[in-house]
Amino acid sequence: MKKRNSKSVSKEKAKPQSKESSMNLKEIESLIKFVQNSGVSEVSLEQKDFRLTIKTSHASFASAPVHQVVHVPQSAAAPAPAQSVAPAAAPATPAPAKDSAKDESKYVTIKSPMIGTFYRASNPEKPPMVNVGDDIKPGKVLCIIEAMKLFNEIESEVSGKIVKVLVDNASPVEYDQPLFLVDPS
């Protein structure tokens, strides 16, 4: 498989493509500060192609340091140039810790790099590309996400075992939506 020299790729990508992205990192930072000081519990901002939600853990305003939880979808956090180095099947994010007895924190979540429709096989007659219990390694195609007639094969970047398939075949997925849980050990 053709692999591009990542250095030259990022150089190319650093060139601004289309400047659709609406906020830069500084603006987001100052918005977070603003929310932090305002005492409101949650602020959502939605623009074309861009959504940002900032939540504080409690709505109180009097008590001293406001502890804020910033939930910024990866899409939003990235300023325009970095956005182009889009986290595709972004691995490396530990699965959110669940309250269940099972410790899932060691698992890696593979997320959707785009909005589209999730398919587990390349066509309806074929078996799924991966099943729970399968060993995968980098480069293994895990699923197809169809987006407006573009058929996108999503490759794994990690080695491990598929623990869970989090989305049903042929259902719509959002950007960054978790698709698979992988046990990397």
């Binding site: 591009r4 407006m148 094969e153």
Partner: peptide
């Protein structure tokens, strides 16, 4: 999104398949 029509009839179809990983389009 990508059918080509001549008048009201289809003359060409397309199937675009991308390979994607964390670095982007391969």
């Amino acid at each position: 999104p990508n059918d080509i029509y001549a008048g009201d009839e289809k003359i060409c179809g397309m199937l675009i398949e991308n390979s994607i990983n964390t670095k982007g389009v391969q």
